[in-house]
Design a binder for these strands. Sequence first.
DNA 1: GCTCGATTCAAACGCCCGTTTGAAACTATC
DNA 2: GATAGTTTCAAACGGGCGTTTGAATCGAGC
Lengths: 237, 237
Amino acid sequence: MPTPRPARRSIAMDALSQDTKTRILDAAETLFMEHGFEATSLRQLTGAAGVNLAAVNYHFGTKEELFQAVLTRRLDPMNQERIDLLDRYLRESRAKPLSCEKILSAMLIPALRLARDEKRGGKHFLRVLGRAYADPAPFIRHFLSAQYAEMINRFKDAFLEALPHLTRQELTWRLHFVMGALSYTLAGTDALKLMAQVAPGEKDNDEMVLQRLAPFLAAGLKAPLGDPRKLELVSGD
Amino acid sequence: MPTPRPARRSIAMDALSQDTKTRILDAAETLFMEHGFEATSLRQLTGAAGVNLAAVNYHFGTKEELFQAVLTRRLDPMNQERIDLLDRYLRESRAKPLSCEKILSAMLIPALRLARDEKRGGKHFLRVLGRAYADPAPFIRHFLSAQYAEMINRFKDAFLEALPHLTRQELTWRLHFVMGALSYTLAGTDALKLMAQVAPGEKDNDEMVLQRLAPFLAAGLKAPLGDPRKLELVSGD
DNA sequence: GCTCGATTCAAACGCCCGTTTGAAACTATC
DNA sequence: GATAGTTTCAAACGGGCGTTTGAATCGAGC
């Protein structure tokens, strides 16, 4: 029997159910990261969380809604943080257009903060997110596009001022590439080992990664438009 | 047909079983692309292929081995093509180091050729591949890292000559970002709609995508090393 | 002390999964 | 036409899945 909590009164039930919900969310975050959405069963999940099997359906409705709740819990604050940071930069710049690097910082810093904050799920969540990007399930795709719409549009406007040589369509593509490299990097469950071993024993790995990713992405965004003839398919031999 | 060793199976049998195997592989390629590995059932798959349910286990052993066969059928030739193309460029350059763009072409062109070749699975396969990159299942990760090891190492050597300002470790990271943007872009089942609509009615979409991706990646690879202080976490407010 | 809504729990529901089985069908060879 | 090896087939196996159910438990308010 779990210890009864005499502290709170009317909120006691709330606190208990909150506790159950939180334990489910935490276990789901970890297991979805380790095995993916489909391969994680509710029996496995509720077992790890130490709650009854039926608790997921009681508190969240379905497994899919649980997954959305896992994403929302972290994504909403992170994207709001991104928008707030961008707004602060814009206010501080006093009408002068921001540099590409500065705008990129507003995107990456909240992600990095989240990655380093173990109390908010840290890397666990970012890997779940990175995987979700590549998932073809319609409910995931619709959910993500809705979640990201506002944030992406705000950043697109800012980048358009910083990169006047790009059309809106060209920028859309490049932001797509940025999100690709970012999500793939964050998702990287051992993906690094695909090509090489990282130097062992490095502290603060995520910060190091983003410090490498940022100049790469900034240079890509600032690149001149491509010459259609640079990439020939017909191999002239 | 005078076969050297007629003690083995007949040609007619081979043709039949080859046909069944091919139909399974084709259906698997499409369904794994549409729904992912876990979410595709063998009943669905064999139904679409018009073969008996047991045929997958008879010809491939398990569902996992079928998935590896789906990947191998396209990946082996494509990676070989990449290596061959890089070798040809190296031969033609006569000891002078190749440009970054040229090396990148050797990576992208075979992928583009595959994407445009409907008879080799085209986009279907590339989306399966893009998803596989983000899959945490150990058997997929081990398989992919083995498949890619040789190709990646060959290209790393070439890039190291083209980008002398990068250490081997730094280059490893940047190639990681390159693979990320590439696989994410190729995987993109409607991922584009995450941020914006593409101009409708464009012909030869994949070629257009790679012509946009190539300059982005080349610029990223050539970028100067990042300044650790460019990305501050402590938001001085 | 009783009620009542919220939460937990064990058990079951119906369904679909990947795989196995053993017999039938087919075909080249003798 | 019997033989042997390969491939197909219908059927079933055991098990795990997400979800539902209805009773038990709990705490707060009257």
